[in-house]
């Protein structure tokens, strides 16, 4: 195939313990470390490996987000992507609108595959990839743990609740990544310098000509109920006694 499109979402770093703003209006993101969504990093790594095997010729990273998402796209370019597209939107974009943005880019770029993370670790929606496949009318292979290309088809192993499912899909198609697909490479300093010269195209979302979907109203944000701290026992006998007290054994 000629091109692979990869989505990179800018999210709060997975090591940050997020907190609800004191007025309940949202999640505190001021001064918080931001990173590429980990599943998207896996998607990019997979695209690069496909290209390195000679099965694709260009890897294009795409982000929909604020101007600052250029940082994540530059990281993607430093990992090895050939060029980047930022669809700029100061406000967060709902999954269906994101899918429509990707469909517009698919129509322009005609990729053989779109590789996305199975979910973003901020909103945990797990929707955009399936939605893109739906409105594109093409196959979806979600939660991928192995991707093999055979010309105009791909064989994908998926992590499902009862084990590993393998499906065959015609290309072009959407593949969403699970954790064990690969381990993303580290970025090297010379690559960061090189990435500064790679093309990064910025288009405001409003100029893309995509109809935005109706997002759900976000009514309230609250912290989860905390579990009460329990008791410590000194030995196995104490543990068994505590379990018996609760009627569990």
């Amino acid at each position: 195939m000629e091109k692979i499109l990869v989505g990179l979402k800018r999210v709060v770093d997975y090591n940050v313990r997020v907190r609800v703003r004191s007025d309940g209006s949202g999640v505190e993101t001021d001064g918080v470390k931001m990173s590429i969504n980990p599943f998207d990093e896996i998607a990019l790594e997979e695209a690069l490996r496909i290209k390195e095997r000679g099965e694709a010729s260009e890897v294009i990273v795409v982000s929909i987000g604020p101007s600052e998402a250029q940082q994540q796209l530059r990281t993607g370019l430093a990992m090895g992507a050939d060029r980047a597209i930022l669809i700029e939107s100061a406000d967060p974009v709902d999954p269906l609108t994101a899918a429509r943005v990707f469909l517009e880019l698919v129509n322009r770029e005609q990729p053989g595959m779109v590789l996305l993370g199975k979910q973003a670790i901020d909103n945990d929606n797990n929707q955009a990839g399936q939605m893109l496949a739906a409105i594109w009318g093409r196959p979806q292979a979600t939660f991928a743990s192995k991707v093999e290309i055979q010309g105009s088809t791909a064989t994908v192993t998926r992590e499902v609740d009862i084990g590993l499912e393998t499906i065959e899909i015609d290309l072009p198609a959407v593949v969403t990544t699970d954790l064990r697909l690969n381990e993303p490479r580290y970025v090297k300093l010379p690559d960061i310098m090189k990435a500064k010269r790679k093309p990064l195209d910025i288009t405001p979302l409003a100029e893309l000509g995509v109809g935005t979907a109706t997002a759900h109203a976000e009514v309230a944000f609250e912290p989860p109920e905390e579990r009460q701290k329990g008791i410590m026992v000194q030995d196995v006998a104490g543990l068994v006694e505590a379990l018996k007290d609760k009627g569990l054994v």
């Binding site: 997020v18 609800v20 901020d122 945990d124 759900h216 976000e218 009514v219 609250e222 989860p224």
Partner: peptide, 14 residues
């Protein structure tokens, strides 16, 4: 739940 369950979001669908 969002953010791995660290935040509970109330949403209203159209």
């Amino acid at each position: 739940p969002i953010y791995a369950g660290n935040v509970i979001l109330t949403v209203e669908a159209p």
